[in-house]
């Protein structure tokens, strides 16, 4: 049951549609440290080392916000998890200690000669979240830097430098009733210091966290393999806890994405989740199912869930 504890189950209704499901967060934290910290950081670092061009991108004008984010996250790690991290700053001199990984980072704030990586790239190697900087310019929000190891079928290299609305161009129905315009206005009004959180979900076949568009030919083919018999092992509910934070100094927006996976065999242990998941998959509009890559195996998945709900009824 332990895998269910703390899993951010995303469904609040019986039918899913896109909405601005952001809520303010109190206390205003941009990141979370979980029991998977060590494993995920090992994977993150391996990916960054092997595929740096794919996992890290930055435009030169993002550098000040990168520094601000590095300070913010080191501070947050230390103040929320003092037994695992410490951070000291005296004048510009900074020392961050990661006791979980037995490492430290010493640097002078805003002095690039004291670090080997760009600030976002460096701090991103100490948190489980993917990190995106949206530059707030007069004509919109632009993706100006990102460290992204666990995307859900999109390419950081392609979207770097793009504007918020264009980034969402492929999402079905996103322009209906001015939805994406409203979301952009909402983000542009977020006040410094506040954190807003929303959940997005999808399904991954296998337990792979790194599913970038770049390797779709490797992981995408597993979608053909799902059957009513193996769905419990193969299917994973993938939830992204996304947080938005306006940087007080530079006024850009930090967007953090923490990705959680839950195997279907574990999910169905919780009866209310099983029912809710079933209802949502069953009623998911076809264009969203297509976009999320669920269409190929939706029938098999539903049959698996129905069998388990039937078992539950007979068991009682």
């Amino acid at each position: 049951m332990s895998r269910l504890n703390g899993f951010p189950f995303p469904f609040t209704k019986d039918q899913y549609t896109y909405s601005n499901n952001s809520v303010p967060l109190d206390p205003a934290k941009t990141i979370t440290v979980t029991a998977d910290y060590k494993n995920e950081l090992e994977l993150i670092r391996k990916l960054l080392q092997k595929h740096h061009q794919r996992c890290f991108r930055s435009l030169p004008l993002s550098i000040e916000s990168q520094w601000e984010i590095m300070l913010l996250l080191f501070n947050e790690l230390a103040s929320c998890n003092p037994e695992s991290f410490t951070f000291q700053k005296m004048g510009g001199e900074c020392l961050f200690q990661n006791h979980l990984l037995a490492e430290e980072e010493a640097f002078v704030f805003r002095d690039v000669s004291t670090i080997d990586l760009e600030p976002l790239d460096l701090v991103g190697r100490h948190v489980q979240e993917d990190l995106i900087i949206m530059g707030d310019r007069h004509d919109g929000l632009f993706l100006e830097a990102g460290q992204l190891c666990f995307p859900s079928n999109w390419s950081l290299a392609f979207v770097q430098g793009m504007e918020f609305k264009s980034i969402h161009n492929q999402v079905p129905g996103i322009q209906n009733d001015g939805f994406i315009d409203k979301v952009e206005r909402f983000i542009s009004k977020i006040q410094p210091g506040a954190v807003w959180e929303r959940k997005n979900w999808s399904i991954t076949v296998t337990n792979k966290l790194d599913t970038p568009l770049e390797t779709y030919s490797v992981w995408g083919k597993h979608r053909q393999e799902v059957t009513c018999e193996n769905a419990g092992d193969l299917i994973h509910l993938r939830v992204e806890v996304q947080r938005l934070f306006r940087l007080p100094m530079n006024h850009d927006v930090l967007f953090t994405i923490h990705t959680y996976l839950l195997q279907l065999n574990d999910l169905i242990q919780q009866e209310s989740w099983l029912k809710s998941f079933y209802q949502n998959i069953k009623t998911l509009p076809e264009e969203i199912a297509e976009y999320k890559g669920i269409s190929t195996y939706r029938t098999e998945l539903l049959r698996f869930l129905e069998n388990h709900m039937e078992k539950g009824r007979r068991g009682r």
């Binding site: 979207v159 770097q160 430098g161 793009m162 264009s166 161009n169 492929q170 779709y216 030919s217």
Partner: peptide, 13 residues
């Protein structure tokens, strides 16, 4: 899916 940054369209596999 067009990027004016790259002046290019995305090609999906």
């Amino acid at each position: 899916h067009y990027s004016s940054f790259h002046d290019a369209y995305l090609g999906y596999p």
